[in-house]
């Protein structure tokens, strides 16, 4: 009896198994039996336009060791090109030529700021040797950085036609090396300037007054000023902040892919070049007032001393402080440094 039952059960199991198999096949077949034309793998795949719309860039994975090559497409490069070839040139051209034009007009209209009370022949120390060294270190680096930087922006349209491709390349390579290497002494200079003169460059009430009276150079006024007047304080902060910003962005460009990738480098270049253009324009104003713009000003940074009358007119509060403190033994030094009356 039990033998018959066992046989029956085996048959049942066989039939059940066959049915199950048939079911699986019947479910599975329609998929593999479909015509190829109705399969569209792109429907569920990543799509270029969609990826670009989401991020304006396409990034993936690469099997070569160069990880930074995993950005497949960044159409932003074309926008950066537009910026570099068109917008930046306008900004730079307007800032620099505009400032030059302004200075020429100002010189023609206002003329040099004269020392109204004339030279007394007595001198007072304004900047010591260290201060002058730091100033000229920074300034000479700045001039070369500016020329070499502007060569990158404007050299191709302005210099290349004159020099020809080969000479212009040699020149550009040279200026590029200067730009990159002089960035270090320049940065040190900016840091020293920051530390050295921060004490006398904190804005205060006198600065408001100074601005209200047009700095005394628009007109013929002499608003009171300490060691640095409000205009000079502005220059100080332009140098510190502009120098800082150009250094940070410059070093990001100098060490590509350390801390930035492509979008970061484009942004760094944009900030670097805008800051540079405005910085150059501001320094043109600074150079003007320190040389032909104001009588008796250059010697402050040239020889380190200024005429007491000059100090009286332009930095009265500073002179009073110095005299009150009796520092710099003004009289003795003035005798030693007195230059023959011309």
């Amino acid at each position: 009896m039990s033998g018959v039952l066992a046989k029956f059960m085996t048959q049942i199991r066989f039939i059940a198994g066959a049915l199950a198999l048939a079911f699986v096949i019947s479910v599975a077949t329609p998929v593999s039996a479909q015509q190829p034309s109705s399969v569209n793998p792109t429907a569920s795949s990543v799509k270029e336009q969609q990826l670009l719309q989401e991020l304006n860039r396409i990034q993936g994975r690469v099997s070569i060791p160069d990880r930074k090559s995993d950005v497949l497409e960044q159409p932003a490069g074309r926008e950066w090109r537009q910026w570099h070839q068109v917008t930046l040139r306008w900004i730079g051209g307007i800032a620099i030529l505009g400032m030059l034009a302004l200075l020429v007009v100002f010189y023609l209209v206002r003329g040099q700021v004269k020392l109204e009370s004339g030279f007394s022949g007595r001198k007072i120390v304004r900047f010591n040797a260290l201060e002058r060294f730091v100033h000229w270190l920074t300034a000479s680096c700045f001039v070369i950085l500016a020329i070499s930087g502007l060569n990158i922006t404007f050299g191709k349209p302005l210099l290349l036609p004159l020099l020809g491709p080969s000479a212009f390349s040699t020149w550009s390579e040279l200026t590029k090396y200067s730009h990159n290497f002089l960035s270090f002494p320049f940065t040190i200079g900016v840091v020293l300037i920051f530390l050295m003169w921060i004490g006398s460059n904190i804005p205060n009430g006198n600065d408001v007054e100074w601005f209200k009276r047009g700095g005394g150079i628009i007109g013929h006024d002499h608003p009171p000023a300490g060691h640095f007047n409000a205009g000079q304080k502005m220059i100080y902060w332009i140098v510190v902040l502009g120098g800082g910003a150009s250094a940070v962005t410059g070093y990001l460009l100098l060490f590509p892919f350390y801390g930035t990738e492509i979008a970061g480098m484009q942004l760094s270049q944009i900030i670097h070049s805008v800051v540079a253009m405005l910085f150059i324009a501001a320094m043109l104003g600074h150079i003007y007032i320190g040389t032909i713009g104001m009588e008796g000003a250059f010697e402050a940074m040239g020889e380190g001393t200024v005429d007491v009358n000059w100090a009286k007119e332009h930095h009265r509060l500073w002179l009073e402080d110095e005299l009150a403190r009796g520092t710099s033994t003004a009289a003795e030094r003035s005798a030693a440094a007195a230059r023959p009356a011309e």
Binding site: L72, G77, R78, E173, K176, I262
Partner: peptide, 14 residues
């Protein structure tokens, strides 16, 4: 070429 890297910033395809 002076190796400035600018073409890499502008190139859409790295």
């Amino acid at each position: 070429c002076i190796g400035c890297g600018y073409c890499f910033y502008a190139c859409p395809f790295g």
